[in-house]
Design a protein around this nucleic acid. Structure first.
Ligand SMILES: [Mn+2]
Ligand SMILES: [Mn+2]
Ligand SMILES: [Zn+2]
Ligand SMILES: [Zn+2]
Lengths: 133, 133
DNA sequence: CTCCTTGTGATAATTGTTTTCAACAGTAAG
DNA sequence: CTTACTGTTGAAAACAATTATCACAAGGAG
């Protein structure tokens, strides 16, 4: 059950790392296609799934939206703009969020996901403009 | 711009309250159909969206899964089982999660969503059994 | 009543993702 | 080298959730 680093897999990983962002499968597909024109979107989805299964990348599942992928493995949360859906990293110190380590309803806790929502500076300006008129 | 309480709307709201749970649009559709056999799933989606827009219900967007709707308006978070996807309420006191009230990357913060994941007691037992064999 | 808005059910379309499958490539024996 | 096995691929179809479209019905306002 060891992972073979195929060309496609490597390319996908490289492009994700290069971008430094939080890309969707199809954004990544567009980038990879530049170098591998015959690759299919299914292959991109497939490999993103595999890579996140083996913890080489992180899968971000922002509520009700398209999945995004992150090559940064360090523990961090995200903030996203409710207007334009931009996503940015958010450093939250561990002690800002303290959770019951176990035994909430008898659950064994495996993780937590914190999403902070807001309006990004750009969208604030945009909104301010529209209001003036 | 006031909300008219149509029969369908009322029925959907009543059934959601009655259930006390966290239902998906189609679970609710099945329930409402018992009383209104001609209602369509689109109407259920439409009205759930409208009802949550005017804050008569809450829309729960659990990562990577189908939206669920909650008739409880009080501020509370949720825990869900990564095995069976059961969702339960989680009371987290405000001071267990303290966030930058504003100015994370210049964002105006509008909210936060906290998801705690774990394995529910039922699934723990199930897993324990499978391991024995 | 007429005009205007809102809500409706049926259906089609769209979106994001997963599955299927035949062809292909890498590895390990025999 | 042949054989068998395994994982991977691209293309296409299937899929589930959601949203858009449309023609019609119901409810006021004037
Ligand atoms: Mn990140
Ligand atoms: Mn709840
Ligand atoms: Zn924005
Ligand atoms: Zn469970």
């Amino acid at each position: 059950m060891q992972l073979r680093m195929t060309n496609q897999r490597e390319m996908i990983l490289r492009e994700l790392k290069k971008s430094k962002g939080h890309l969707t499968a199809d954004e990544l597909y567009e980038r990879v296609k530049k170098f591998m024109p015959r690759i299919s979107l299914a292959t991109v989805y497939r490999n993103l799934e595999i890579l996140s299964d083996v913890n080489m990348i992180r899968k971000l599942e922002i509520s009700g939206r398209q999945k995004r992928f992150d090559s940064e493995l360090e523990d961090h949360d995200h903030i996203y703009c409710v207007e334009c859906h931009r996503i940015e990293n958010l450093e939250i110190s561990k002690n800002q969020v303290e959770l019951p380590v176990e035994d909430a309803h008898g659950y064994t806790i495996t993780g937590r996901r914190l999403e902070v929502t807001g309006v990004c500076p750009r969208c604030q300006k945009k909104i301010a403009k529209t209001k003036k008129q």
